[in-house]
């Protein structure tokens, strides 16, 4: 009886899939792509064609709108967690509590491991940055759409696939590292941080490159109808989920590593030796 039910289910599933495929082939796409693939991909990098207006004040890249939406979503989620979940925390944690505690602990322990003395602010910063990168990258999976200034509809990409967002994150991380240097070693800390002058550029463009590559591949895949089957599953996993985890981890790790390095106490003469 069970085998028969399974066979029936498989048959129904197969027929449904075949009908969808036939439908896709039979129904003519309007085929009226206004932009070539080259223009689409160029726009993904430069955002010079499709911009979104913020309350009619200024036209900005869709990535910034994504950032606002992500922040709003995180705000709602945080409020729910703060007032509905956290008050119900128990000594022996449940599943949701365990996930939250693990998330906080991961970044807090990372901060403590890399900067033993000064790590209070660092823990909070890498937690926020990691969460923003992770959820911001996953955001593109939802396929939220926005209307551009030219009246077109675009799918909102990850906030950090926008060069401005990536530069902000890289430079802010660098400033946080510098604040660690000041807290740990005063003026010497600033000098030690300035020695790593390439850090803001490398961190910014690492983030931008990683997330943009995902966005470009996704755009490429969805541009052609023939590539829109099965492949998006792999692409979604490869360029969204993995990037979300890896980039959040990499930025948090790099920030805490350099923070710990510049914040640690430098004995007299150490700086001179380094300079020599």
């Amino acid at each position: 009886m069970e085998k028969r039910a399974k066979k029936l289910t498989a048959l129904v599933f197969g027929i449904a899939l075949s009908l969808i495929l036939i439908g896709i082939i039979i129904i003519e796409s309007n085929g009226n792509f206004e932009l070539t693939i080259k223009e689409v991909m160029r726009d993904q990098v430069l955002h010079d064609l499709h911009q979104v207006s913020v309350f009619g004040i200024k036209a900005v890249n869709p990535g910034l709108i994504s950032g606002f939406v992500v922040t709003a979503m995180i705000l709602i989620l945080s409020l729910i967690i703060r007032f509905a979940v956290i008050p119900k925390f128990t000594i022996v944690p449940g599943k949701v509590q365990l996930v939250l505690e693990q998330a906080v602990n991961t970044f807090d322990n990372m901060a403590k491991a890399n900067s033993e003395k000064i790590n209070g602010f660092l823990g909070a910063y890498i937690f926020a940055a990691g969460t923003y990168i992770f959820l911001g990258t996953l955001f593109e999976l939802f396929g939220f759409q926005a209307v551009t200034t030219t009246g077109h509809i675009v799918t909102l990409s990850a906030p950090l696939s926008d060069i401005n967002g990536a530069i902000m994150m890289g430079c802010l991380s660098y400033l946080v590292i510098m604040s660690g240097g000041v807290a740990g070693n005063g003026m010497k800390g600033i000098v030690r941080t300035l020695k790593e002058y390439s850090l803001p550029i490398s961190m910014s463009f690492r983030l931008f490159g990683a997330l943009l590559s995902g966005a470009l591949v996704t755009e490429l895949v969805y541009y052609y109808r023939n590539l829109s089957f099965v492949l998006p599953v792999l692409v979604g996993v490869m360029f969204t989920l993995l990037h979300a985890v890896i980039q959040a981890y990499v930025l948090a790790m790099l920030t805490s590593l350099f923070y710990g390095e510049v914040a640690e106490y430098a004995p007299k003469g150490h700086g001179t030796e380094e300079a020599a």
Binding site: L64, G67, F68, V70, T71, I74, L75, S78, L79, I81, R82, L100, V104, G123, A124, Y125, F127, A128, A129, T131, Y132, M168, M169, L172
Partner: peptide, 14 residues
């Protein structure tokens, strides 16, 4: 945007 997010996450979760 990120500063607001940082404040939210810090005071409501972290």
């Amino acid at each position: 945007n990120f500063v607001i997010l940082f404040a939210i996450l810090y005071f409501l979760l972290y």
